[in-house]
Design a protein around this nucleic acid. Structure first.
Length: 559
RNA sequence: GGGUCCGUGGCUUAGCCAGGAUAUAGCGCCGGCCUUCUAAGCCGGACGUCCCGGGUUCGAAUCCCGGCGGGUCCGCCA
């Protein structure tokens, strides 16, 4: 509804400009604390037309005519600003729309297929608290895009051919594998040990090289060793992701592109296109804008990660309209190089979402060195703390209930905490803040939802239809306006690929609901407004649940 | 050394790309509100050289230039 309101504001403003003889391309319409939408275009017209900004604003405002049944209700000027206010119809239509569409309210009209790749952590250990920033950003983006109307496929690219996997395969034979442990953690144990040993005795490194040549040749026994190791790790990773409500539709193994010939075909084409050169005995693509050449075949003619990644992207590009990769900041250069080569051979480039690193107070994390906090450990601790918090508040509740709520609140807190900050900010993990349930986060929003549900339970029935005209208090009106922003926020977040926009909206929505909750009693209201307010609470429940759903956070009916 | 991202009250953070009206919110701090729809809530208060210096502009947290500080990358690793 807000989008429609905005376009109506644009239209009346444009007409008024024509009528009053001013010309400007950008209308400078923005959200404002002083109005539902405001324009500051008078400032820019002032110098060109040699008139005072305020005078121009008045002339334009006078020339504005609002059509009947418009979503625009009123126009006022304050100095040079032209302020637009939503009409009664805007309020009524919003409420009706939510009431009719229910869960589908806010779904956009995005068209086409999107393939989004996220997490794609190497299968050499469990996910750590850095990886899950990738997972949560990626999963939230996928949910945003689905809500925006796109057909979304979510992929995990499994690096099952690299040196790190070779080290894991080597280590599995050499050291005892703890079958009692969660598989990804047990893999990390032997992987860390192997790295230590390889570091101490460099002569062992040639054994790893042999494994890698074997896999490139297509040696069946070698492939079996690699894939059994990666499958184990991936199974552990998947169960961690599931705990966090993170889902992938498809796991694509990079070995597929070596076996299937896509990698060698691509290398052949790059040669034919004249994009490659020999450097020593390796094959490279010269990079004019990046100061170093990009190696795509080692001296022993085996492919490197980026070569397979190029084949993977070409394969993906054929199947979708938009391709999105969520990558850590360390991939910035290599992904730019990847895009350069893709466009040089006529393949559409992916849209890349980069997030900055999560580090520990003592420095950056490293799976190889065993310096990391695993996602499982974090989730365990957060759930434990959440149970303490639930028990504090609901000491008499059944144990099942408390456990259930603790899970929903704990996971929600982790997801919200990560998604609420813009991806380009580097963060430092610390336990105190991770386990702090007092800071405003998911529980605040979940609690608002539970409050709405509680009112609806006590109301015992939700009216079939709603008469929004009965909603007239300031808190009611501004809450409806906040509800109306939902699809606008989804649209914005899906275009800019910024999930934190939705997180911030969720908080603002909950804040507005709390204002309504405080100022407008529902159950004790006089009969004529009672039903309308119950209807509005139902709208609140729907939109709060949808917003939490987009964030991958559970919406408890009671907590 | 070069590239890139970040720098906003004690801490965390929105706004910056598309410059405008009192700079967003939380934690922490001070003071209030539970016989009234769940107090994981609400109300009030204190706390700011928007890293620094120039420039552009009627107007700069926002754009440009130059610094400073931090992350990250610059492997025939992934």
């Amino acid at each position: 509804m807000f989008l429609k309101f905005k376009s109506e504001v644009e239209s009346v403003l444009k007409k008024a400009l024509d009528a009053s003889g001013y010309q400007i391309d950008d209308l400078h319409i923005e959200e404002s604390a002083h109005a539902d939408l405001a324009s500051s275009l008078s400032f820019r017209l002032a110098s060109e037309y040699r008139q005072s900004p305020a005078a121009i604003a008045d002339v334009i405002a006078d020339a504005i005519t609002i059509p009947k049944d418009s979503l625009v209700g009123d126009v006022q000027t304050v100095g040079a600003y032209i302020n637009f206010f939503a009409s009664r119809k805007f309020i009524d239509d919003t409420v009706h729309e939510i009431f009719e569409k229910k869960k589908r309210y806010g779904t956009g009209s995005g068209k086409g297929k999107v393939i989004i790749e996220h997490t794609s952590a190497n299968p050499n250990g469990p996910l750590h608290v850095g990886h899950i920033r990738n997972s949560i950003i990626g999963d939230t983006l996928a949910r945003i895009l689905k809500t925006a109307g796109y057909d979304v496929e979510i992929q995990y690219y499994v690096n099952d051919m690299g040196r790190q996997v070779a080290i894991v395969a080597w280590a599995m034979d050499r050291f005892e594998f703890d079958g009692q442990k969660k598989a990804d953690h047990a893999i990390a144990d032997v992987y860390i040990r192997a790295n230590r040993e390889l570091g101490e005795d460099p002569d062992l490194v040639c054994q790893i090289d042999e494994l890698m040549q074997g896999i490139e040749r297509g040696d069946a026994e070698m492939i079996e060793r690699f894939s059994s190791a990666t499958d184990l790790a991936v199974s552990g990773i998947t169960s961690t992701l599931k705990r966090m409500n993170v889902h992938h539709d498809r796991f694509v193994h990079e070995s597929m592109f070596v076996k299937g010939g896509e990698v060698s075909a691509l290398v052949g084409e790059l040669k034919e296109l004249g994009l490659t050169e020999m450097a020593d005995s390796a094959l490279v693509v010269p990079m004019p804008t990046f100061d170093k050449d990009l190696v795509i075949l080692r001296s022993d003619q085996t492919s490197v990660y980026v070569t397979r990644d190029l084949a993977y992207h070409r394969w993906k590009a054929e199947q979708c309209d938009r391709m999105i990769d969520v990558l850590g900041a360390d991939h910035k250069l290599i992904s730019n190089q990847l895009c350069y080569v893709l466009s040089a051979c006529g393949v559409k480039e992916p849209e890349i979402v980069i997030f900055e690193f999560v580090s520990l107070p003592e420095g950056s994390m490293s799976t190889r060195a065993g310096k990391f906090i695993s996602a499982d450990e974090l989730l365990d601790e957060v759930e434990k703390q959440a149970l303490i918090e639930v028990t504090k508040r609901r000491p008499d509740a059944e144990e099942d209930f408390r456990n259930h709520v603790a899970k929903e609140v704990g996971i929600g807190a982790v997801r919200y905490d990560i998604v609420k900050v813009t991806p380009e900010k580097a963060t430092t993990f610390d336990w105190e803040s991770a386990l702090d349930f007092d800071k405003l986060g998911a529980p605040f929003i979940q609690y608002s939802h539970a409050r709405a549900c509680s009112i609806l339970r006590k109301a015992s029935h939700v009216p079939e239809s709603i008469d929004p005209a009965r909603l007239s208090g300031d808190a009611e009106i501004s809450f409806v306006k906040e509800l109306a922003r939902f699809s606008y926020v989804i649209d914005l977040a899906s275009r800019e690929l910024k999930p934190h926009i939705v997180a911030i909206y969720a908080r603002e929505l909950a804040e507005e609901f709390n204002q309504f909750y405080r100022l407008s009693p529902v159950l004790s209201a006089p009969d004529d407004v009672r039903d309308a307010r119950i209807g509005l609470v139902e709208c609140a429940r729907i939109v709060l649940a949808s917003t939490l759903g987009v964030l991958g956070i559970a919406a408890p009916e009671s907590m």
